[in-house]
Computed example of a mutant assay.
Amino acid sequence: MLLNELGEAKRCETAVILTSDSLFMSSRFSYEDCKATADWLMAQTDVRPTVGIVCGSGLGGLADMLKDQVAFNYKDIPNFPQSTVHGHAGRLVFGTLRGRPCVCMQGRFHLYEGYPIQKITLPIRIFKLLGVETVMLTNAAGGLNQDFKVGDIMIIKDHLNMPGFAGNNPLSGPNDERFGVRFPCMSDAYDRELQQLAMDVGQELGYGDFLKEGVYCVLGGPSFETIAECRMLHKLGADAVGMSTVHEVIIARHCGMKVFALSLITNQAVTDYDSEEKANHEEVLQTGKQRAEQLERLVSTMVTKIEHNNNYA
């Protein structure tokens, strides 16, 4: 009898702990938390951004293009996570890009850093509360499409959310209608008009030889993919693979913002057991450095076109 009572007490204790943890997790990333952070930022700067830009590994130079900058270290922003990855500066930069008010994340957050998925995507909800209407995301990715070369820029037209297949989705848990609906559509996750605009701008700039389009697959990381995994992902329809972006896209679309995203192909995924090639982070950063100026020019020119396009005014 005593053993049964002890067992029941232990189960109740576990249930209380789990319930408390669940409440704690949901309360840390609430609408009120995001609003408090957005209000704090707006009190520090007069810039009211309509475009939000997220910079991937080695691509933080986009933020340096902003004029009349007001920058904040992530560690100084209430409720904000901190970037722990080499190549991510960890700053939120406000300013104007060719006259358009923008906010730029110079470094992002990933599942492999140990953050809950809701914390990773919290900045995107803050973007929404700052007044952002269009989100532009960049990342460094491994090429799975054999027609891709290192240094190619891939406009993302769709994605495969592998962590989501296992239930790790940033929208898991209670839904707050102030952000968006319970079951948002993702068949139009990447704005088709912005994709076409990128292709047109790329042609104007003479980037036709290295501007591609394709499907991006996200994995949890931080280990790079095995040969078998690369082969499987390619067969599933992925053209490039990485460890970011998709979670942010889901939240941006949930909030009703338009999304454009691109991948810089920084290495070719290894699919041959006889190959001596090995993926490494330094190669990612080096390729980013080499192609960064052209990528920055593409995005900044797009921002100008968005400004003068009535569909996005």
Rank of each mutant, 00 (worst) to 15 (best):
Y112W: 11
Y115L: 15
Y115P: 06
P116C: 13
I117N: 04
Q118W: 02
K119H: 11
K119F: 07
P123T: 02
R125K: 15
F127R: 00
K128Y: 08
K128F: 08
E133M: 03
E133K: 10
E133L: 04
T134I: 13
M136P: 05
A141F: 01
G142M: 08
G142Y: 10
G142D: 09
D147K: 06
G151L: 12
M154V: 15
I155W: 00
I155M: 00
D158H: 04
H159P: 02
M162A: 09
A166V: 09
G167S: 07
G167A: 08
N169M: 10
P170M: 05
G173V: 12
P174I: 14
E177Y: 12
F179L: 09
F179V: 06
R182L: 14
R182N: 14
F183M: 11
F183G: 06
F183T: 07
R192F: 03
L194K: 10
Q195R: 14
Q195V: 09
A198N: 04
A198T: 01
V201R: 01
G202M: 00
G202H: 00
E204P: 05
L205T: 10
L205Q: 12
G206N: 10
G208N: 08
D209V: 10
D209H: 14
D209L: 08
K212L: 01
C217Y: 05
